[in-house]
Simulated scan of single mutants.
Amino acid sequence: MSQEWLVQVKNLCKYYPVFKKKFWEKKTYVKAVDNVSFSIRRGETFGLVGESGCGKSTTAFMINGLLQPTHGEIKFDGKDITLVKEKEIREKMQVVFQDPYASLNPKKKIGWIVEEPLLIHKKYSKKERQKKVSEMMELVGLDESFKSRYPHELSGGQRQRIGIARALMLSPQFIIADEPVSALDVSVQAQILNLLKELQSKLRLTYLFISHDLNVVHYMCDRVGVMYLGKIVEEAPVEKIYEKAMHPYTKLLLSTLSGGVDFDENQIFLKEESLLENSGEGCAFYHRCPYAMDVCKRLLPKLEQVEREHFTACHLY
């Protein structure tokens, strides 16, 4: 695998101002993403994992340009994406969305939906576009008869195959897969994951894979970043995460798979926390951590290397 970085994210932030009830109150922000940094090598699958609301999708949509960051730097293929034309970014970077039904136009036939990216970017003649649609549908395991159908006539797995085909029409280098199987039946999930792996090998794709399902992440990813309340708290090759997790939050996530490793069973079901608690003073996980010390409350831990390719943000190390 090439060591060349395709995507580089540095100190990425997305803050949303909170409405003030009184004009003299101090302005506060929801820190949806707070100083997130990571890089993705060409040809690999980098996973972002964490509970719902931790900032995974917000991070992905800033990389894709669907959201503007508050601060931070995003480089794609060595270029700052803010300095590159949006059309060029759209051609090289595409998204496979979570809900395959909501992401497809219900009023349009499948053939038009798959062809749409080529129409928007004014690529090829009509005959060439039709040929490309047929080739791409065959690549994702669907025959030409599907071109005349509507999204509601397809199963969830078939709709997600269409979503994948549409994402690949412009021959992108980089695919953001945002919870691509979470809306599907378990029996269909494995088929879609295997398809994504097969396409990655055939087309030399690079993936940012977002999920809350640790089993799926283990199967799909080469390296993993664990997110908690807008921050990456641990990053390592996937096997290191599963065999030697270091951050208490990562251990908590893994305990849901193994039956409670290092955690009281009741700690898995904890009351919801607000991102407003992520003030930057002290560790955001302090109130849930069984290993919390006084320093954790006072000082924000930095994401630092503790072993080769293994980083964690915890005062225990």
Rank of each mutant, 00 (worst) to 15 (best):
H315L: 10
F209L: 11
M169W: 02
G47Q: 00
K231V: 08
P301N: 08
T206W: 00
G259W: 06
K20P: 13
D264G: 00
H212P: 01
L66S: 14
Y286W: 11
K271S: 02
P301H: 01
E235A: 10
T312H: 06
D262G: 12
V133C: 03
N11H: 15
R204H: 15
E116G: 02
R42M: 13
N11P: 08
R308G: 13
V217N: 05
S274K: 12
C314T: 10
F23M: 14
V238D: 01
L6A: 01
Q8V: 04
E51Y: 14
G141P: 00
G78K: 09
K10H: 14
L12Y: 05
G72N: 08
W24S: 08
C221M: 07
A60K: 01
I110K: 05
E86M: 13
N64C: 13
T312V: 15
E309W: 08
A236P: 01
S279Y: 04
G43V: 09
L193F: 08
T82A: 05
S187A: 13
V224H: 02
P237W: 11
K231R: 15
L254W: 14
K240I: 03
H315G: 03
D80A: 12
L276F: 00
Y228W: 13
L104T: 06
G55M: 04
D143W: 11
M220S: 00
E309Q: 13
E51I: 04
M62K: 01
Q191S: 14
M1F: 14
F174E: 00
G259H: 12
P172D: 00
F97Y: 13
I40W: 03
P151H: 11
L214P: 00
F38Y: 07
K20M: 05
V261M: 08
G78M: 10
K75Q: 13
L195V: 02
H218A: 15
E44M: 10
V295E: 09
S171P: 05
H315R: 04
S134F: 03
L199Y: 04
H247T: 12
R129N: 11
A165C: 05
F311R: 02
N105I: 14
T256C: 15
V295R: 15
E135N: 09
I110G: 01
K127F: 06
K20V: 09
R204W: 06
L300D: 12
E4N: 15
T28Y: 09
K297D: 14
